[in-house]
Computed example of a mutant assay.
Amino acid sequence: MPTSSPARAPLSAITIDAASRAVIHQHNADTVRPPASLTKLMTAYAAYACIAETGRSWDETVTIAGDDVHAVAADETRMGLLPGETVPLARLLEGMMIVSGNDAALAIARHLDGSQGAFLQRMNRHARQLGLRDTRFASVSGITTPHHASSARDMAVLAAHLLADHPQILAITAQRAFAHGRFSRTNQNALLGDEGVDGLKTGYTQAAGFCLAATACRGLPGQAQLVRLITVVLGSDSRQARDARVREQLATGFATLAGAVIEA
């Protein structure tokens, strides 16, 4: 007798100021749930931290292990890596962040820490250091895995730290397409091209629903410096509904801040 999938938790959403991390809007922001490929925000953060701590370089060449290619199921996203090929570490970061390559995430983890398990320890250590109270990582790519969970609030805080500590990530997440060998794919962040939107990460699994951590930087009347907002939506029922919700929250967030500046 067929079994039905567990019911997904109601949608979670939050919008914060990237600099101050002040909350502008939130809805079920602390609901603990799978974050899908938004996980890769921490995979990237931990990779940047590892390289800084160890004095290693993004120019390092990585030999791709067969296990990291074959472990990625046919229905998972990938960047088209082949066993035995050599790829610069920086190229793996691009493949992971632009087209959400799960093979790239596995290869990064293995190269930097020797195994996914060791790299997961690093990711969870950073989660504790950043105060992500509802987060536990059990996958470096974000595939559905027991005990792998986060919340919209934690993902927004993580995104804020990633942008503050490694703003160069935006030069990657703003790219519209990616190609590696015979593989090519567009960035699934349809908000790129909207006013000021330059990242950050999309995600989808059946368990998590459609997810997006988006960021945009815009000017406000009467304010000299540009303002950057981060909006996270987890658990939407469709890509279209997710994108519409994020666009609405970004627009409302900037309008709220503009109104506050005018009243002041």
Rank of each mutant, 00 (worst) to 15 (best):
Q188Y: 11
R247W: 03
M1S: 15
H70I: 12
P10R: 09
K40T: 01
V62C: 08
L250I: 02
M123S: 01
N189K: 08
L257V: 00
Y45V: 02
C50G: 12
M1V: 09
A47W: 05
Q188C: 10
A22L: 10
H166K: 04
D30A: 14
D237L: 09
L212F: 12
V62E: 09
G66A: 13
A74I: 14
V23L: 02
F137G: 00
A105L: 12
R242C: 07
I143D: 03
N187M: 09
A109C: 09
L112H: 03
P6Y: 07
T39F: 04
H166L: 05
S238V: 03
D103I: 13
L41G: 07
L93K: 01
P34W: 02
L163D: 00
V261Q: 12
A13I: 00
P146Q: 11
L120S: 02
G55I: 13
L82Q: 14
M97V: 10
V157F: 10
G222I: 00
V99A: 03
T231H: 10
Y45G: 05
Y45F: 15
D154G: 06
G84N: 05
D75P: 05
R176W: 06
L158E: 01
A52W: 03
R125D: 13
R110T: 06
L130C: 06
A156V: 03
A214Q: 04
A65N: 15
S20W: 11
P35W: 00
A73N: 08
Q175E: 07
L234G: 01
R228I: 05
M96V: 08
T54H: 12
S236G: 13
L132V: 09
T31I: 09
S115A: 09
E263P: 05
R176K: 13
L162N: 01
A107G: 14
L41S: 06
E60C: 10
T144R: 13
H25A: 12
D165Q: 08
V246G: 05
R33F: 06
L162Y: 00
A258N: 08
P6L: 09
G142R: 00
A260Q: 15
R128H: 14
S37Y: 05
T43F: 07
R21T: 13
T186A: 15
T39D: 11
A49F: 07
Q129D: 14
A107N: 14
A47R: 06
P34K: 04
T144Y: 12
G219I: 00
S236D: 08
I16P: 01
T215R: 01
T39C: 09
R91H: 13
A207E: 06
A71P: 02
G95I: 04
N124A: 09
K201H: 07
